[in-house]
Amino acid sequence: MAKKSIKIRAKLKGDTTQVKTLMTHPMETGLRKDKKTGKLIPAHFINEVTAESGGKTVMTAYWSGGISKNPYLSFSFDGASAGDEVTISWKDNQGGSDSASAKIK
């Protein structure tokens, strides 16, 4: 997988950490035809995203190809402090995966 497919911004506001993340991925549904060849483009999409912080799973998302290309996800959680790490990992339906971490600011 291309390096740095995940960008993360994590900000603490009061007790709540808001995490915004952007992933680089084609998110092909498998239902779209190649304009030139007329053939179906095989499904290729992130189907699972997990977020961890402080050794705990904060969020598990399951996706279909109905999430837009180069997916965006934001979510919030309580219980972390500034300087803690948030780790985002994704896996796709073709066995690809990536993971990245960022410090909460």
Partner: peptide
């Protein structure tokens, strides 16, 4: 909403 985390950010890098 898109500019919130714009899809072109990785391309700047």
């Amino acid at each position: 909403a898109v500019e919130e985390f714009p899809p072109y950010e990785p391309m700047i890098e």
